[in-house]
Design a protein around this nucleic acid. Structure first.
Lengths: 240, 240
DNA sequence: CGCGTTTTTGAAGCCCCTCAAGTGTAGTGG
DNA sequence: CCACTACACTTGAGGGGCTTCAAAAACGCG
């Protein structure tokens, strides 16, 4: 079974065979987690680094009044909190959205990867920086795009990320997110989320049913989103 | 004249005298920059690390339709893009908001700080993680807070940050941001920004005039904002 | 003093929210 | 096979928060 983590890191650095073997060994032990389980909660002391091997999860915060805001989606291959050890406590929670398989890498092992294996370290830092870039783009979306553009933009992002790790086939990919979850991520109500999807379907832009999303009109979708994929940094610095 | 950069790092690690001397030397050379000057633009190859010594700046992105979204405020003591060298190009721009004094530290020197001076490295990583935490909280604000709470929350954040670096006196601090700039940061129109400030003034929560902000009712402000300062991580991991 | 920028105020309208009810779609157990 | 439950999705009606458009007032700087 494919290790999306190693595949993903391989996109951002030239990993040697020993590098790959080491990463495989560190993620060899994994546990299954049901959907809707917190991996770690706001206020907890940071623990080991989680690596998503299968399934989706999200970072989120709960507001005093009870609302939830999702801050990031974690897909297979993604890691959580590379260097959280520096801070006293988690400032957000992480929860699975689907049944998942998760590996844990201890702090010391992470330290070894970062200091003793330059190419792995480089790949890890790159993914970290891209995650940060995605946060910035989310802020732009929330601040300046209307609901239709916001939904379209998120779909573009998730599609490209899914494709990078080999989870997309053609213009379709598995997106096991309910409309409630999407609404929590985009700062909308589930009701309005539903209406926006209705419009996008009616305009023959996408088809979305129960976990699978098909993009009928990629150009139209990107135009509605005002999508510029540079922020995902899929071009490497020294690739030229 | 105080070096806010060193003062700030001193909040997050125990710096030795040689550490302090080294940081002072690296930021000894600085240049003055007028207001509204781009330090670096989206699409540029990352350059040296900038250190704000005086004045304010912001990260921002311009949308295809012309709108601007500010993604972060940089105050004296803040650094930009600690490790940007890994990525091929900037995914956002940085611009001064006031006349400023900026030091530049070359990539090699940064590398030396990170690998050869553990306490400095620790402090730099901490500030980096806090910046990321702030991004997450901004997403929460944009997604789930109405305009009044959003404005109140930003004021709370900026006040605490200003106080950390010694820029606040009592419940007042210098906040040289126009209403247009605040609107660009909060995803509002300048017109509405003005009305929200009007309400907050009318309720005797704040006073805000030309660069100086006075918080009349800190408790009321924090209540409106739903403010929880944990995300600024002013408590250190090993402080206990 | 004159000019650009910032702040302020008004009026009208739309986007998205709130409240509410109804319709699938699975899964469980009788 | 159906009853029951839980959850996700769908649709309607009404309201409010924020925007848009427009213009005037106040400020700051040469």
């Amino acid at each position: 079974m494919a290790n999306r983590f190693i595949e993903k890191l391989g996109c951002f650095a030239v990993l040697s065979d020993p590098d790959i073997a080491l990463l495989a060994k560190m993620t060899a032990v994994s546990r299954r987690v049901r959907a809707r389980q917190d991996l770690i909660r706001e206020g907890d002391r940071p623990g080991p680094v989680f690596v998503m091997l299968e399934g989706w999860a999200c970072r989120y915060k709960i507001l005093p009044e009870g609302g939830r805001q999702i801050i990031a989606f974690l897909m297979p291959g993604d890691t959580c909190d590379l260097h959280g050890a520096v801070l006293a406590e988690m400032d957000h929670s992480i929860q699975t959205l689907t049944p998942a398989r998760v590996a844990s890498i201890g702090r010391l092992e992470v330290q070894e990867l970062l200091t003793g294996h330059p190419e792995i370290a480089r790949a890890l830092w790159t993914t970290q920086l891209i995650d940060e870039s995605v946060l910035r783009v989310w802020i732009v979306s929330m601040g300046r795009r209307d609901s239709k553009a916001r939904v379209a933009h998120l779909i573009c992002e998730l599609y490209l990320r899914a494709r990078t790790i080999g989870l997309a086939s053609g213009d379709s990919f598995e997106m096991p997110l309910s409309q409630v979850v999407l609404a929590d991520a985009l700062g909308l109500t589930p009701v309005h989320m539903n209406r926006v999807l209705h419009v996008l379907r009616g305009a023959d832009i996408i088809r979305f049913r129960r976990g699978a999303l098909h993009i009928i009109d990629p150009t139209g979708l990107a135009r509605i989103a005002g999508f510029d994929e540079n922020y995902l940094h899929r071009r490497l610095r020294d690739a030229a």
